[in-house]
Every structure is written in structure tokens, then in C-alpha cells.
Design a protein around this nucleic acid. Structure first.
Lengths: 170, 170
DNA sequence: ATTTTATGTCAGCCTTGTTGACTTTCCAAG
DNA sequence: CTTGGAAAGTCAACAAGGCTGACATAAAAT
């Protein structure tokens, strides 16, 4: 086993926190925290015929209005069939508008309608409230560390997606 | 909108990091990081007839050998029917042993067999490797902040479960 | 003119969650 | 000792949301 920690050998001071025990705590923290992270939007979605997949679509369309289907596909990391099922219901219900591209007419550009924007706001507000409470409780330095670790945990291509979004909105 | 930040009014210095923009970055970081978090075990599980649900069961049985079904139920937060399907296949395939309770014979105490322990080790090693790389890249202080924010993000009852596990293993 | 790309759609499958109804076992209170 | 209720397991039916494969259409690119 890779049990580091304890005795401060050469470089030991930087390995002190990397025991399997510490790593397992991190793993379990991710597991339990993610449950909390999704709990509030999930509760709201129970009142609709929508699930987490719809929430994700609404979030990223709101985030990048006019985004194409292909773009959304690569961000969400699902198949087009899977996404299409979600988008179809959102379009039918009038939460998302799909406009044919002007330059490239094959593309569909996605926008939230007022109705879609309203639901997105409800969902993200619930999620932001929890995030805000957690950030407030932990403090600014903890928040910085939180983000650093999460960024380092992403796959490289997802980190690029994340950074494109991050920079676009800032 | 609850756009704080900017101008350092009364208490402004402690709210500087709580803009909706910062919160949204935190939300997206959680989303993308969780994908990375599960990616490696998922890849291993493709070679078996198992999924994430089996991984979770193996993890927590390994974590608390002899735990009862009810106990596992409350940790995993699923229905007994859902867990039962997973446990049944793990028991049939000889990865988990279910022993009738000595004091209360209604209870089943769950243990990993050698085979179950082997798979659990593979899965958790893959997950730990990523966590270790992220922790190493971010540094000890970031790790502390990471854990603080995640703990604050959990539901209260999940935080209790987490702490019981945390203390037991330490 | 042909190929590639973007999108949509149909059919079918899997995992993993749900509810409801029911049985068996067995501890514990009356 | 009987009975109520808790713990566990099972069966059936269903839904969300992933997946693959096959196919259609329109439009861009070559």
C-alpha cells in the first residue's frame, strides 16, 4: 500500500496529507457533497416532468445563449440521442427555442424562452443558495482551495470546457 | 439578483467572493470534477457486469466490514429494493458474503470476499490515484479548503454519516 | 458531384432508481 | 405464549436517462 505520512523524510513535509486515509476521506466527501449539491434542484424538479438532465441542459443554454447542439453535446458528455430526448421535451414545452443558424443552416442555436429562463433561475438559485452557505461557512481561502482541487480533478478536456465557460462569463 | 461583490461596504470584505459569478463557477467546477472523479472506476467497471452502484456498495462494505443492509441503505440513500438488486448480484458472483446476524438473526452482516476485496482495491486505487494527483497539484492548504467546503455542502444527516465514517477509520 | 458534417429520429437495450404488495423471520411487549 | 411490528428479502411494474445502431435530411465543404 502507498501509506505515506508520518516521519518527515526527504520531501516528507509535502506528502504528509497524502495518506490513503486522507484520500479516502476526500473520496467520501465528494460522494456525500455531490448528493447535497443536487438535492435542492432535484426537489424542485419533482414538481415537473423533468430531471437532472433537463436541469443541466437549461444551465448550459442559459450560460451560453445561442450555443449549438454539438457544442452542448461536448459539454454535457452524452450522446446526441440522449440529449435530443431532453431538448425535444424542453422545446415542445416552450422552455427552449431552437433557431436555425444564419451562417450555417445545419446548426440549431439554442436559447431559453422566458418560461425556460424562469425555471432555470429557480433551479440555479436553489443550488447557489447552498453553495453560498457552504462558501460562507468555509471562508474565502477554503473556497480558493476547493476550486483548485476540483480543477485538478477534472479530465484535461473538461478543464478546457470549464475554463472556456469561466473566462467567457467573467 | 443577489449580486454582491465590488464596493467594500459594511462587511463587504467577507462577501467579495460570493458573487453569483463565483457561485456559478463553483457549481460548474463541481459538475466537471465529479465527472473526473467517477471516470476511472467507470472505465474499470466496463469490463464487468457492474456499474457505479456496485462500486459504491463495495466501497462502503470495505469501509465498514460487517455492516448491516439497513446501515448501508442509510449511507447510500437508496431503497432496499434498489440496493438488494446490487447486493444479490455481488453475492451470487462471490464478491460479497452475507452472514446472518448472531444477536439478531434477521440482520445480514456484509463482508467482502477475497474476490470482492480485489475488485474494490482496483476501483479505489484508480480513484485514489486521481485524488492524490489533484491533492498534490493543489497543495495541503487547498486540500483543507476543499474538505471544508464539501463538508459544509452536505445535508446535515449526510454530514453525520460522513463524520462517523471519518472518525471510525482515523 | 461527392463527401462530410450537423441534426434529428426510431427502435431497442441497460443500469439504477422508484412504488406497492407480499412473505418470512424473529425480537420483544403484552 | 401469543401477537405486533421491525428487518430483510422478493416480485412486478415502471421511469429516467444513459447507451448503440441504423437511417434521413439538409447544407456545407471538397
Amino acid at each position: 500500500m502507498s501509506q505515506h505520512g508520518g516521519l518527515g523524510g526527504p520531501g516528507g513535509e509535502s506528502l504528509l496529507f497524502l495518506t490513503d486515509e486522507q484520500l479516502r476521506k476526500g473520496i467520501e466527501a465528494m460522494f456525500f457533497a455531490y448528493r447535497g449539491f443536487t438535492a435542492d434542484p432535484d426537489r424542485i424538479l419533482e414538481n415537473y416532468a423533468y430531471g437532472r438532465a433537463h436541469h443541466r441542459a437549461l444551465h448550459f443554454i442559459n450560460r451560453s445563449p445561442g450555443t449549438t447542439v454539438n457544442n452542448l453535446l461536448s459539454i454535457l458528455g452524452v450522446t446526441k440521442q440522449s440529449l435530443n430526448r431532453v431538448l425535444r421535451s424542453l422545446i415542445e414545452d416552450g422552455l427552449v427555442e431552437s433557431r436555425v443558424g444564419r451562417r450555417d443552416k445545419r446548426e440549431r442555436h439554442l436559447y431559453l424562452t422566458q418560461k425556460g429562463s424562469d425555471l432555470e433561475r429557480d433551479l440555479s438559485e436553489a443550488q447557489r443558495n447552498r453553495m453560498r452557505a457552504a462558501f460562507r461557512a468555509a471562508g474565502p481561502e477554503a473556497v480558493s482551495g476547493f476550486r483548485q482541487v476540483l480543477e485538478a480533478m477534472m479530465d484535461a478536456d473538461m478543464r478546457h470546457q470549464y475554463n472556456r465557460l469561466k473566462d467567457a462569463g467573467a
